[in-house]
Write a protein that binds this DNA or RNA. Structure first.
Lengths: 248, 248
DNA sequence: GCAAAAGTGTTTTCTTTACACCCATGC
DNA sequence: GCATGGGTGTAAAGAAAACACTTTTGC
């Protein structure tokens, strides 16, 4: 019996894209409001029509899964440049009512959030949603979607398929990677202030850092430049830094 | 156009199994010789007939990829109990000469190395091979197979498919998990001495640890028992410890 | 007694934390 | 001047590394 005689599943990929959004503060004294956001699409077709889901789609011949993930992300959301990090395969029986579909999930990290440009036929609309963590529970948007760590996350939300589980797993992985590796830099533009670094760090790890100490912890990993940033704010302008070129 | 109209790849899984092997020292004064080993099978059929490869096989309907991995591991090598950790999907075009095959790779950790019992038709024989790391290069067996970090690992060895790459990626992941999480305990039996803990730790991280300091670093994570271990060795017997029950 | 490993204690060094304080900016 | 964040200094607390030393075992 050859391997070709086995039945084959469809292979899909789902992508959870993280980005940092900066919103100008109303008060010119204060810092920009930063938020961690993820990219969701509203499904325009069954199954789960009207639900939110992660962008994704099916693997095609002559492409790797990474290429498929980048292609789907661009098609459904217009995002073209991202760092891809493999998550894990999701293959539970019945996870997709359409049939036997295995999804290889990826996390994508982008440096700047651009307004959504492109939308293809599968998706009704795609948009950025704020994601926050409180303890081990995750909330998306204005409290619309909550993923509790100790529940069956696939069922407990307005999210399609097992995407609640994927989002939960991804957030935990992101947190782990930020703490143990230097993946936070993949969420920042080339030049950034130390506050640009600290706020996202805190949003993801869930821990407040003392500014003076955080600065020292990071100086090993960054280089200072001769540029300054001050969007007309009423306080001392901040030096711009970049990731140090060694030991990347 | 429905998703069903797309061509589908075959989905496989490959499993890299790590275990710690203890060999009685000849000198009754000395400690057991411990080695990190991985499980390879010698391929009995084309392609790559005669080459070594990771155990693995195709995903079947009505099972998850994790279940497929455990099933294939048991069928090809007799290993029945293991902790599975997802690696990543391997999908490069042409990675398998038989056709379009995507492999979801897993790492499996076992607590005790048993002699190989079962061998199915696909594999000519399966066996444990010592794996060592020197810098970023990895050697398998008695210097028979070497995987260099900066070469095209898929080509440079007697390993089938892209399994050299998978083994390399897995070792790096194992090292990372041992340093940053407490995954070393999944390679040990329930009760162990501190030396049982230290030697594997050093083999995987590639760093020697001072015994007194290593002990202190680990005491937070383990509990002592009232049992002692001394295989008739000419030195003070060691207390047996177990992983602490909290914060697992 | 001897060699080897088990285990404890102490000192030094480095890292993390907490907190006080000065600097620069726009209004 | 004032509020706010940028940035430096310093001391205390905690963790990691280095090293000396005692304990226990089988022969």
């Amino acid at each position: 019996m050859s391997y070709k005689d086995y039945e084959r599943p469809s292979v899909a990929t789902d992508i959870i894209t993280f980005g940092i959004d900066s919103e100008r503060a109303e008060n010119k004294r204060e810092l920009d409001n930063k938020q961690l956001k993820i990219l969701l699409v509203k499904r325009g077709e069954a199954p789960f029509k009207g639900c939110y889901s992660l962008p994704g789609g099916f693997l095609r011949p002559e492409e790797t899964i990474e290429e498929a993930a980048m292609r789907e992300l661009a098609e459904e959301t217009g995002v073209k440049s991202a760092k891809l990090i493999p998550l894990k395969p999701y293959s539970k029986i019945g996870r997709d009512p359409r049939g036997w579909i295995v999804s290889c999930a990826f996390m994508a990290l982008i440096r700047t959030i651009e307004p959504i440009t492109s939308v293809n036929s599968d998706a009704e609309s795609s948009d950025w949603f704020t994601i926050t963590m409180d303890g081990d529970d995750i909330s998306i948007g204005e409290g619309e979607i909550v993923i509790k760590s100790h529940e069956d996350t696939a069922e407990s939300s307005q999210l399609a398929f097992d995407h609640g589980q994927i989002i939960f797993d991804a957030f935990m992985k992101l947190k782990d990677e930020v703490v143990n590796h230097d993946i936070i830099f993949d969420l920042l533009p080339e030049y950034f202030t130390i506050a640009d670094l600290q706020k996202p760090y805190e949003l993801i790890t869930g821990k407040r850092e003392a500014a003076a100490n955080f600065r020292r912890k990071m100086t090993k990993k960054i280089e200072e430049t001769e540029m300054y940033d001050n969007g007309g704010a009423m306080h001392r302008p901040s030096k711009l830094y970049k990731r140090s070129s060694e030991q990347k």
